[in-house]
Design a protein around this nucleic acid. Sequence first.
RNA 1: GCCCCGGCGGUGUAGCCCGGUCUAUCAUCCGGGCCUGUCGAGCCCGGGACCCGGGUUCAAAUCCCGGCCGGGGCGCCA
Length: 431
Amino acid sequence: MLKDTQAAEVTPDRDGEEVTLAGWVHEIRDLGGIKFLLLRDRSGIVQITCPRQKVPEEVFEKVPKLKKESVIRVRGTVQANEQAPGGVEVIPEELEVLSESETHLPLDPTGKVDADLDTRLDARVLDLRREEPRAVFRIRDVVTTAIREFLEDRGFIEVHTPKIIASATEGGTELFPVVYFEQDAYLAQSPQLYKQMLMAAGFERVYEIGPIFRAEEHNTRRHLNEAISVDIEMSFIESEEDVMRVLEELLAHVFRRVTEECEEELKTLDVELPELETPFERLTYEETLDLLSEHGVEVEWGEDLPTEAERKLGEIFDEPIFITEWPRETRPFYTMAKDDEVTRAFDLMYQGLELASGAQREHRYEILVNQIKEQGLNPDDFKHYLEAFKYGMPPHGGWGLGLERTLMTITGMENIREVTLFPRDRKRLHP
RNA sequence: GCCCCGGCGGUGUAGCCCGGUCUAUCAUCCGGGCCUGUCGAGCCCGGGACCCGGGUUCAAAUCCCGGCCGGGGCGCCA
């Protein structure tokens, strides 16, 4: 390796040790006879101090000529010093430029001058060198790790379903067409039908953390055309309650893990995570409409909740809530009906955002075929899916949780693009 | 797709309402100089911009029209 020590590993107790560091030139402060160079790597920032008397002349001359954000490598000696930030600095013996940066950076990675989100996304690589975006993506990593940890513990196995699918769809959202040899194909809007097929395959508990693609021309701060969905599907449930419990416990676990492991990152973002208390409050769709009405928001029975209603719920409840018993007309064909009017479907709402939705699914072949017809779809288009229901399909259910939206609630980011490395929206396809 | 607001150096901005005095403000930045303890270093000198097209006018960063782009809201979104 080109280095043996990370910036954050340079601590006062290593006084006198020789270290080799490598990273980016964060800042240079040239005071004439003494020059300070801040070296940044993934772990943090360390000060390289160059007093004229103590460093080789060649190194001393090189420092003021360094460009900000160039990649350098420094060999030197650790020196505990109360005058230095963190009480420690490195006196260099050798300094090598591995890659020189151009001047006039598209934005300021030290964060002294703000940049608009659009400017930041255009120069995302430079933007990701900043502290806040790094905190966001370290949290994102802890979140997905915590999700895997939680689900694996409960016997779920991770699966990967196809992202290129044939023309037959669940209806609803628009799909992106792709060129697939001589056939019509689309990018998958959800792993729904495949994870159900895996229930028929006898896997009983599966999860997938993968991309979903939606060709809607939406233009909001909480929608992306490519997003990551955390999906589970689970067999032998008695009712949707069984999968709702997995969801609430999972979310509480994720919040706990982030609180434990991301103290620094949360501080950087200036957020404090609540401890989520389970079980979450449950309201039926009908109760929700009544409650909204009391708060001056009228929604007609059978309608999905408009944005205003979602936000109002976010104001009324501090904690996540489940909305259950959605009307049949608001839900897709594979949802199990509870009676003539409502289904066994639920949504998870938090901070005015729909984080997840799920349901017990219809596992009975005849009823399922009828529901496909009722929604104006053609059962022939679902031949391979329906096959799965003919040879023994357990009662089952599951949900899909939007990873980015979950991250918005954790990091406090108000634009979903902030929690996505390279977001894809109506206008943005680069970088 | 609709509504509101906006687009000025590399970045973030002041100026626009009420056209001229704008050879356009401030910070950061970039280049040069001074400085041996900076930590948003300081000081001195220099550099760099009015989104595009059309119109009104003696005169447009400023007013009008169109386009493109962006922000927010809404719609759309199993």
